[in-house]
Deep mutational scan, measured.
Amino acid sequence: MRVFPVYAPKLIVKHARIFLTGVIWVKDLGRLEFEKGRFLLPRKSLPKVKQAILELNELIEAQN
């Protein structure tokens, strides 16, 4: 598990694309899981977490 002390979308996306499957922890967002290079949306999450995951997945799609 990698810990990101700040929310840096480009760096987080780079990590997810390299490792494809895993878990990261982002300060103020908490634990985020990714599989096959995409972030998974938890069943229950705060609106800011949901927005961050959608933003990260959009960045991943834009890079493909």
Rank of each mutant, 00 (worst) to 15 (best):
L20E: 12
F34Y: 06
R38N: 11
V13F: 03
F4D: 01
P5S: 06
P9L: 02
L40A: 04
F4A: 01
M1G: 15
P5K: 14
L29N: 00
E55M: 05
Y7F: 05
K50I: 05
V13H: 02
L59Q: 06
P47T: 11
L41N: 08
F34S: 00
K50D: 06
N64Y: 04
S45V: 13
I24M: 07
K48R: 09
A16D: 00
D28K: 15
A52L: 04
D28P: 13
E58T: 11
R43K: 08
H15Q: 02
L11V: 07
A52I: 07
E55F: 09
E55H: 08
P42K: 14
L29V: 12
P9I: 03
R17L: 13
R38M: 12
V49S: 04
E33L: 10
I53G: 00
T21N: 09
E35W: 10
I53Q: 01
L20T: 09
R2H: 15
G37W: 02
V13P: 00
F19W: 15
G30W: 02
M1Q: 15
L41T: 11
P9C: 03
K27T: 15
K36V: 05
G22A: 03
K50M: 07
I24P: 00
A16I: 10
I60P: 00
K10E: 13
L54D: 07
A52R: 10
N57V: 03
E55W: 04
L20F: 07
V23R: 14
G30Q: 01
L29Q: 00
I12M: 05
K48C: 11
I12G: 00
L20Q: 10
E58H: 09
L54P: 00
G30T: 02
K48T: 07
L20H: 07
P9S: 03
G22K: 02
K48V: 06
R2K: 14
W25T: 05
E58Y: 12
A62K: 08
A8W: 13
L40N: 08
F19D: 10
P47S: 12
G22R: 01
A52E: 01
P9Y: 01
R2C: 15
V26H: 01
P47F: 10
I12A: 01
R31E: 15
A8S: 09
L29P: 01
P42D: 05
V26C: 05
P47E: 04
Y7A: 00
I53W: 04
L59R: 05
E33M: 13
V13Q: 04
E61Q: 10
P9T: 03
L11Y: 06
L11S: 10
Y7T: 00
K14D: 13
V49A: 05
P9G: 04
L29C: 04
F39V: 02
V49T: 06
V13Y: 03
